[in-house]
Design a protein around this nucleic acid. Structure first.
Length: 271
DNA sequence: CGGACAACCTGGCGGC
DNA sequence: TGCCGCCAGGTTGTCC
């Protein structure tokens, strides 16, 4: 589900509900989603810590606490939302961890597929040290992107999905960015020309920024914290549109598999 | 290092 | 209606 725009939307939506609050307990309903700690160790360590900040790093939701750092990765089907204790909502059936707050409300981590992970660590680098740069940071310039690509090889789509290369891009925004940049996802990055690198750089930033503006992409599980769907699916040019006409040239959009991921593109526009 | 693939899981959907 | 197979926004580890 969640790529950079969805995670960013969630962080922004939860900020007011969480920052300044105190954790007074945690109920763990699926222990394997907690990394490295038993459910009781996790709850004991969390209780008494205050939320100092909430931010995003790649696809991780990062909460700075009074002593530790709480990180949550939503993987494919994770959702995060705040509700009053006792109040029922649509996705409660799949809640794996409930974080109890000091104001009678709770943060719920719902995750149908159980791939998601929660980390409570003293040093966030334990979790995020292998992530590449943030594609929307001011420091991520065209020059920085060029430098990042220097000496790399392999299929461009696979590289975009590699979190150690750039943090936050996933399958939807990778396919969409490559369409906007008019680059075939199978191209080896060591064959990209300067103009193509420049188009790709702008396309990556543009699709991610638009994704954030529209509150993310809802295909199935993802909702904003207030329950409303995102809107970026209305901007899809190729993703989930196999067989439909390319918005640019009208040719049928193809779907192939690259690595284990479905890949959508226009063979006529993307070279 | 790059690529292929299995594993981790459940739910929804199309086909029969 | 019921069952079966396939597909899904992600990551990690193994093997070649």
């Amino acid at each position: 589900m969640p790529e950079l725009p969805e995670v960013e939307t969630i962080v922004r939506g939860l900020h007011g509900d969480l920052v300044g609050r105190l954790f007074i307990g945690a109920t763990v309903l699926w222990g394997r989603e907690i990394h490295g700690l038993s459910p009781s160790e996790f709850a004991d360590r969390l209780v008494g810590q205050r939320v100092v900040g909430l931010r995003r790093r790649g696809k991780y939701i990062v909460s700075d606490l009074s002593r530790d750092v709480l990180l949550i990765h939503l993987k494919m089907s994770g959702r995060l939302y705040v509700a009053a204790a006792g109040q029922n909502t649509e996705h409660d059936r799949w809640v794996r961890v409930a974080f109890h707050l000091d104001n009678g409300r709770e943060l719920r981590f719902s995750d149908a597929r159980k791939f998601g992970r929660v980390y409570l660590v003293a040093d966030e680098a334990e979790v995020t040290r292998n992530l590449g740069p943030e594609p929307l940071a001011d420091t991520f310039t065209l020059e920085a992107f060029r430098a990042l690509l220097a000496g790399r090889r392999g299929m461009v789509k696979s590289l975009l999905l590699h979190q150690g290369f750039i943090a936050g891009v996933g399958n939807i925004y990778a396919d969409e960015a490559l369409w906007h940049a008019r680059i075939d996802p199978r191209r080896n990055v060591n064959t990209l020309e300067a103009t193509e690198i420049e188009r790709l750089y702008h396309a990556i930033r543009q699709v991610l920024e638009t994704g954030i503006q529209l509150g993310g992409t809802t295909v199935s599980w993802y909702r904003q914290p207030d329950g409303t769907p995102g809107g970026y699916q209305s901007r899809f040019r190729v993703y989930d549109r196999a067989g439909e006409p390319c918005p640019n040239c009208g040719a049928a959009i193809r779907k192939i598999w690259l690595g284990q991921r479905g890949t959508h593109f226009c063979e006529s526009c993307q070279r």
